[in-house]
Nucleic acid binder design. Structure first.
Lengths: 211, 211
DNA sequence: CTAGAATATGAGGAATTACTCAGGTTTGGT
DNA sequence: ACCAAACCTGAGTAATTCCTCATATTCTAG
């Protein structure tokens, strides 16, 4: 048993420019190594080696191996969250149609996941094992679903029975399908995947409005 | 020629009833331990302990830790594949509507994944790392997509431009969304998830037929 | 310039784990 | 009953990996 030295926060905060560069190198190297080798085969020694830094330096800023991946996961979540928020606010309010907000959302999610799917797989796995990350991901996801539910209400053209439920399925579908196609060798290119997903979701929402 | 120390085939085949029971116990224990602790924290010693068997016995039938998970993955794939095939053939031929074949398919997939999602997550992860498993899963998936594409053509009511593409998205959507909801704490129960997925997919296919 | 704080180093300790093997027990055919 | 093959055992080994710490180097404030 590892004597769990509390959580994931940096053991020491980098104060000088030099150490901030070091931390940057470590994270960049970790992203590559985790992506290439997966979680189990990635060792702190190898990360340090790839970062051209000694293991000791790594352990000055990260209390353990998980903390490095944890940091990568948080960074990724923030980027994704920002992109999704930008996409959702790019649609007018109220949006002219479901397509008006769905299209940028789908594009944003597909674009995000097109980059380094192997690493994202490792990150997602870690995310499900850390309570703190689970909380962060859940919060971000919930916020997106809430926004989408509001948009659903504002779009003219018919009433939806349970907007929360519809929003949840729509958002989850975009995320999980995209992830799946990114992970496997994709038989779809990003453009057709976006288009087809969009078609499916608009059809779903239209059906819900008229039924 | 000594046979290649092949990666995952049993080191020795169980011949007597006693050893077949042993292998059964090992697999059952492995399923529980992998599901509870995840891949990394699962040790062969712990599996053996849970199976009330010595480590040595485990290594008589499995060349290494991965081989145990590999066996679990193959078993799961076979069960899932059989369930999907049964569901698809339960619809009449030609099916009366898209709903006629979609409903049993969605139900089957949701039902399968409702059981022990934690273990399935570990299995899926292993599946993406073993070329042999990747091949098996890809083959099964491709066969399903092919069957669905044929059904799409047989359903009366309009022509679909690219049945292969539509079938691929439909099947992938069912699998990945179901998996996602199973993995996380599900805000949907199985019944509503099935119903909602069904609604989305029928809407999609109807739209494709009339457009 | 200088002192002390910040940062970097990397060999090695401690712990864990996958896997072996020499020797025992059980089984089933004859 | 007998024996060879099948099966089981579990302490021990070799390898791996996480992480520490004593020491060295670099930075910055005064």
């Amino acid at each position: 048993m590892t004597p769990a030295p509390s959580g994931h926060s940096p053991r020491k905060a980098p104060k000088q420019a030099r150490s901030r560069r070091t931390v940057g190198h470590i994270l960049a190297a970790a992203a590559r190594v985790f992506g290439e080798l997966g979680y189990a085969a990635t060792t702190t020694d190898r990360i340090a080696q790839r970062a051209e830094v000694s293991v000791g330096s790594l352990y000055q800023y990260f209390p353990n191996k998980d903390a490095v991946l944890h940091a990568l996961a948080l960074r990724h979540l923030e980027e994704a969250d920002a992109a999704v928020r930008a996409a959702l606010s790019s649609a007018g309010r109220p949006p002219a149609s479901d397509r008006a907000w769905l299209e940028p959302l789908v594009d944003a999610v597909v674009t995000i996941h097109a980059h380094d799917p192997a690493l994202q797989r490792v990150i997602l796995d870690e995310a499900s094992r850390s309570p703190e990350l689970v909380a962060a991901y859940t919060a971000s996801h919930a916020a997106t679903v809430r926004t989408v539910a509001e948009l659903l209400l504002e779009v003219p053209g018919g009433h939806i029975h349970d907007p929360g439920q519809a929003a949840l399925l729509a958002v989850t579908t975009v995320e999980s399908v995209t992830h799946r196609f990114a992970g496997h060798g994709q038989p779809f290119d990003s453009a057709t995947l976006s288009a087809e997903l969009l078609e499916m979701l608009t059809a779903y929402l239209v059906a819900k409005r008229t039924s």
